[in-house]
Design a protein around this nucleic acid. Structure first.
Length: 193
DNA sequence: GGTAGGATGGGCT
DNA sequence: GCCCATCCTACCC
């Protein structure tokens, strides 16, 4: 595959469902490790009751209401961190959850951070797994993703792949909304479909 | 192949 | 005090 190039900050200024699709095949870098994004979910503002922004702006959700291209990171089940990319414009609290990567660089570090053996796909085929493998924590809350230590870059020549759309995983509201986007049949997805 | 249960802590009512 | 945008292990087909 060809080399990567920076993703300009204004490329993140899309409605969450469009950004979720645009982020497929881009590469997430942090601390000597990197992986290609193959699974995302869009979370909307307004009437999307599954979104953390649905109950308004709080200390935790503050970054969702600001400019796009920032990291929204939260602790889930007291154990795992989940990484989201803030989408849209100021005041529109959409975001994109990064759910799975294909490991590309620094696999020994990923195995060490995960503390488990297994196939490379198991390093990053889930939202809690990939943050552990790339050492992404609440310390990165609010950071810009177009440049810096935690960054997203895109291939100069975007690979050709098929996108599939499904409902989101693990939520109890808006369960049928088609807002999960995957690289179809990719071996590193968190679920087969 | 499958599922049931526990870990664990911050956010919110 | 309850609820999680999860993961792993144990156990059962």
């Amino acid at each position: 595959m060809s080399a990567t190039e920076p993703m300009p900050l204004d490329a993140f200024a899309l409605p969450a469902p469009e950004l979720a699709q645009a982020l497929l095949s881009t590469v997430l870098f942090h601390r000597e490790t990197a992986g290609m994004i193959v699974e995302t979910e869009a979370y909307l503002g307004g009437d999307d009751l599954a979104s953390h922004s649905a109950r308004g702006e709080t200390m935790r959700t503050r970054v969702l209401f600001g400019p796009p291209g920032r990291a929204y990171i939260y602790l889930i089940y007291g154990i795992y961190e989940c990484l989201n990319v803030v989408a849209g414009a100021v005041g529109t609290p959409g975001c994109v959850l990064i759910r799975a990567l294909e490991p590309l660089c620094g696999l020994p570090s990923m195995y060490q951070r995960r503390g488990l053996a297994g196939a490379p796909a198991t390093l990053t085929n889930g939202p809690g797994k990939l943050t552990q493998a790339l050492d992404i924590t609440a310390k990165q809350y609010g950071q810009r993703l177009d440049k810096g230590a935690l960054r997203i870059r895109r291939w100069r020549d975007r690979p050709i792949f098929e996108t599939a759309v499904t409902p989101r995983i693990g939520i109890s509201e808006c369960v049928d909304w088609p807002l999960r986007f995957v690289w179809a049949r990719h071996p590193c997805l968190s679920r087969a479909r």
